[in-house]
């Protein structure tokens, strides 16, 4: 019996060419470790990407990989899964690739529930094209293409996914390897399209854009790690989220002495899309940023399962073309 693979076994011989300090390095490590942890078979694992910094990812993972064209990775991945539903397919995309040029394909891969993991590295900027504002950039983002500040409202990746009908929505942070690894494992275990937004720091063009909640010293207060069945507490349990039925909104409440009893705090129900909507809509800095598995719908058949319904394997032939040629009216011309 061969030894189980380690994270190192999922590294290729290619020199990694992201900028020094790029958040992608941490994500790559987390993914390679996850692959080892779940016992992934490199021969049956495929990383499919589009275009952008994040999309170089497949070159660095020792499995099958396909670096495709801008925005279209979900469409390639869909065709691949239809051809071979047994493959374990990961789609790697970014905020520009997945939500701007490729928004349409992401929408449809999610609503179809193709059984892939979609990792969207969100750095709120176009990196590879040298720093233009992206569809997730906040209003006022100054960039080479928006010198006076961008004026378009940003899209929330996870709310987009929820609206698209995604059945698994989670969030993680590039540098929080432990939590990200757990999130990736949960995404992998989900049968269907699993959407994971990863806050990724672009050290060159958008450095520290997430530091208001990712910095160690503020993390406790500015992040809430949600877990199914557990109360929505943060700040080491000193604060929690409760639901105000009058306003139909969440509120941050102090818990315990001088605050509300813990029974007032909402318990996370990852199967509740309305709660997911609320958790994903919390404005910063008044609310913490929700991380972890925010939404996981009850099991539904993956698209490729329904696609091949009735057939044992793709392309299985019950009939012959020679017979099909004779369907309908056939007449015979006799000799002579």
């Amino acid at each position: 019996m061969t030894a189980p693979l380690t994270a190192k076994d999922f590294a290729t011989d290619q020199e990694v060419r992201w900028c020094p300090g790029c958040g992608d390095y941490a994500i790559l490590k987390a993914v390679q470790k996850t692959l080892a942890d779940i016992g992934a078979n490199p021969d049956e694992t495929v990383f499919v990407s589009g275009i952008g910094c994040s999309s170089r990812f497949p070159y660095y993972v020792k499995s099958y990989g396909f670096h495709t064209i801008h925005g279209r990775a979900p469409a390639f991945a869909t065709g691949l899964k239809l051809a071979n539903p047994d493959l374990d397919v990961w789609v790697v995309t970014g905020d520009g690739d997945g939500l701007s040029i490729g928004g349409n394909h992401l929408l449809h891969a999610l609503r179809r529930n193709v059984n892939v993991q979609v990792l969207l590295f969100n750095n709120e900027i176009y990196g590879l094209t040298k720093g233009q504002y992206s569809p997730t950039s906040r209003i006022g983002t100054r960039s080479p293409s928006s010198p006076k500040g961008s004026i378009d409202a940003p899209v929330s990746p996870c709310l987009f996914a929820l609206g698209a009908g995604a059945k698994f929505i989670a969030r993680g942070i590039d540098t929080d390897a432990k939590h990200l690894g757990e999130t990736l494992k949960a995404a992998h275990a989900f049968e269907g399209a699993a959407f994971v937004e990863i806050f990724q720091n672009c050290i060159v063009y958008n450095a520290d854009v997430f530091s208001s909640f990712t910095e160690k010293k503020v993390a406790d207060d500015a992040q809430i790690h949600v877990e199914h069945g557990k109360p929505l507490l943060f700040a080491k349990g000193a604060k929690g989220l409760r639901f105000n039925p009058q306003t139909f909104r969440l509120e941050v409440a102090a818990v315990g002495e001088g605050g509300v009893p813990q029974t007032d705090i909402l318990v996370h129900d990852e199967t509740n899309p309305a709660l997911a909507q609320l958790l994903l809509s919390m404005p910063q800095p008044d609310f913490p940023v929700a991380l972890g598995v925010i939404y996981r719908a009850p099991a539904a058949a993956a698209f490729e399962k329904g696609f091949w319904a009735g057939r044992a394997r793709p392309g299985e032939r019950a009939g012959r073309v020679a017979d099909a040629l004779r369907r309908g009216s056939v007449w015979t011309k006799k000799a002579g």
């Binding site: 499919v48 279209r72 469409a75 390639f76 065709g79 899964k81 349409n104």
Partner: peptide, 24 residues
């Protein structure tokens, strides 16, 4: 007859899915 059809979301996705299938 061993054929499946995938009605994609657009022309681009149709081409990409077909290439994904060939890759597979």
């Amino acid at each position: 007859l061993g054929v499946a059809t995938f009605q994609a979301e657009d022309e681009i996705a149709a081409a990409c899915a077909a290439i994904g299938a060939s890759y597979g």
